[in-house]
């Protein structure tokens, strides 16, 4: 046995190694099964899967990449939060400072391009699931969870778009959030809103409608920036995390990667 092999075996037989990995080197069927079963991250997988199910031309690995991009966004996002303050005074200069002074200033680039890539990846994941008919029974519910995750991904990207507080940001968000004021009944320019009034006083006005709720104001201003920041960094990621757990759990419970019945 070579020196490297012997050093490796020394570590793998030590008490420290054994306390972390409660199985031998995954070289035979039993230890390989143990490797998956006894690892909290890997045990998302079953021990064995259908051979044709994991062909790359079948799955495109798009769901996995979406999840990986979500993790990459979380890591870079947390790091970006160290350098960014969500106020009108500081938001823009913080981004400028990040560009100019921070070592590994690629953070923002990775975060932004990763977000774009995540949108594309989740669309293509959905296309694959649709074209293989994998939404059919027994997977109807999990398809629905996936649709909600898709919407949340778009909302994550949309709320993040505002944070640099440049011209691109506020006008894209202005265009996008203007729709909310036309919500039927809930937007002050939506159909039916004029019906909601008490003794001639309208209930739905520019200061109380759906758009106001979204922006915390009647225009994209400081309150909107704070609101989008909290939605982007805390609220939506938490909901997404919970739904991802449900999504993965249900893949297993609904019979794993789909295949001909």
């Amino acid at each position: 046995m070579s020196v490297i092999g012997r050093v490796g075996d020394y570590f793998r037989n030590s008490q420290v190694w054994g306390s972390v990995f409660r199985h031998g080197v995954p070289r035979d069927r039993r230890t390989r099964a143990m490797a998956v079963l006894s690892n909290v991250f890997l045990h998302l997988h079953p021990v064995a899967v259908r051979k044709s199910g994991i062909r790359l031309s079948f799955t495109w690995c798009m769901g996995g990449l979406t999840f990986f991009l979500f993790l990459a966004e979380t890591v870079t996002g947390v790091l970006l939060m160290f350098y960014y303050r969500p106020t009108v005074e500081y938001a823009y200069v913080d981004i400028q400072g990040l560009r100019a002074h921070v070592t590994l200033g690629l953070l923002r680039e990775i975060h932004r391009w990763g977000a774009h890539a995540m949108v594309i990846a989740i669309w293509l994941h959905m296309l694959r699931v649709f074209l293989t008919g994998s939404y059919k029974p027994p997977r109807e519910f999990n398809w629905g969870v996936g649709v909600i995750l898709l919407v949340l991904t778009l909302l994550l990207s949309f709320t993040g778009y505002l944070l640099p507080w440049d011209q691109l940001a506020i006008w894209a968000i202005t265009v996008g959030s203007n729709m909310a004021r036309a919500t039927p009944f809930l937007g002050h320019e939506g159909p039916g809103a004029s019906l909601l009034q008490v003794a001639g006083v309208p209930l739905v006005t520019a200061g109380s409608d759906a758009r106001f709720g979204l922006l915390a104001g009647t225009f994209v201003g400081p309150n909107a920036l704070l609101r989008f920041y909290v939605l982007h960094c805390v609220f939506i990621p938490v909901v997404v995390t919970v739904l991802i757990a449900v999504h993965f759990w249900r893949i297993r419970k609904d019979g794993g990667i789909s295949g001909p019945l």
Binding site: R32, V36, A48, K51
Partner: peptide, 22 residues
Amino acid sequence: EAGSDDKVLVWPDLVYTELICL
């Protein structure tokens, strides 16, 4: 996609595919 009884172990077949994609 036929051969639904043809199973392979997740370690190494799937985890390595995932690792390479990642």
